[in-house]
Write a protein that binds this DNA or RNA. Sequence first.
DNA 1: CGCTCCCTTGAAAATCCTCAACGAACGTGG
DNA 2: CCACGTTCGTTGAGGATTTTCAAGGGAGCG
Lengths: 221, 221
Amino acid sequence: MLVRINTAPRMQIDGQLAALAGERMSCCEFRYRRGAEIFGEGEEPEYVYQIISGAVRTYKLLPDGRRQINAFHLAGDMFGFENETTHRFTAEAIVETNVHLMRRTSILEAVRHGGAGTKDLIKFVTQNLQHAESHMLLLGRKTSLERVTAFLIEMDERLQHPDVMILPMNRRDIADYLGLTLETVSRALSILRDEGLLRFDGNTQRRLELVDRGALAKIDA
Amino acid sequence: MLVRINTAPRMQIDGQLAALAGERMSCCEFRYRRGAEIFGEGEEPEYVYQIISGAVRTYKLLPDGRRQINAFHLAGDMFGFENETTHRFTAEAIVETNVHLMRRTSILEAVRHGGAGTKDLIKFVTQNLQHAESHMLLLGRKTSLERVTAFLIEMDERLQHPDVMILPMNRRDIADYLGLTLETVSRALSILRDEGLLRFDGNTQRRLELVDRGALAKIDA
DNA sequence: CGCTCCCTTGAAAATCCTCAACGAACGTGG
DNA sequence: CCACGTTCGTTGAGGATTTTCAAGGGAGCG
């Protein structure tokens, strides 16, 4: 499942990781195929990851298979840091994904010695917490239309307002992120399309164009 | 709203705060009346709090008044730390509450100088994140009965499995924590009572006894 | 004794989910 | 390059869960 494609460190987007490790990190590049598990809930954390290209979902499962996706991670994002001895969720590549990885112990070492990356680490965990807090508001109190709209706005911002937004995840992933079923997600998108707030680009449903960002923002509440 | 009751630091339960501030903290004790706001969303964070006695809810609001409670904080708990320049949610005393407070800047100072409390701070934020992640699973994917059961189990554990659990919060608070309405919470509690998994103690509905913790744990999924 | 807040319960309504069918896109292998 | 199976997305109908609306009773407090 795990294919090493290049052992030489690439320096273009590893600023955050480098800072965390106090510039003395061991850094490799790996590729995961579409659908491949990067680490599983309960496993011992060995690496911290930064996405070079692709997309990753992290999720928790209930015993009967119900799934809640905590977050989507896109190019440039870090994920997988654990303070504890086990991973609290599972991470999978949504599409073919290339990541930088570094040993978790290097980071812990850096923190123990008061490394320069300590503040960045706190900031990283705090940002995750901040995202989780607003997602709790969405999951606990927003309607299906508001949730889907909020998702579109979040993706639009993270992809820096592209003309055409290309979603790496399917409807089921979106549903499990928003606490809905895939049918409800599909219906909400159809409503937004029928009302002229977005357009599907071409004959594929993963490429969409936000026509009226102002109206979308108003729906998001 | 804010009444200073004692300016002398109390040392019994401030271990965590003390560690964070590298033992050189300025620490006061304050009392908040039932319902009093401790800080508001968007305000500039000045203090970090630790509860001596009482209970606190932290929540976010949507423009139309829908409320999502992120967490309940009980005696011994810390809350209110912010890495950013504004509070991300509002904190209110659920009942009359006594807190220790210390200046946020002392903690940031300690971290900047590689203080001994840095690791504790990361741990603190990580624990909050961990709670938020499992709460997202609850809000996104659990039924009303599972949510109420999970709430009871969480409170039972945090109160260290008392014979009679005394809840400081009302049904609306529980509902806003679980992403439900107060009626649904009430109905779920009635079901659990009718099935003999819990008992209401006396003629008040805030005191309840978990009769069959095993059965409750099974419902929680 | 009043009032207010809190909780429960019932009935009706709304939202969302489940089940089902269908068509399109994609990927694989010939 | 095409055929075929698989995955993916949409839409409809019916059903289940939760919410909304409403009423009533009990506890606490001035």
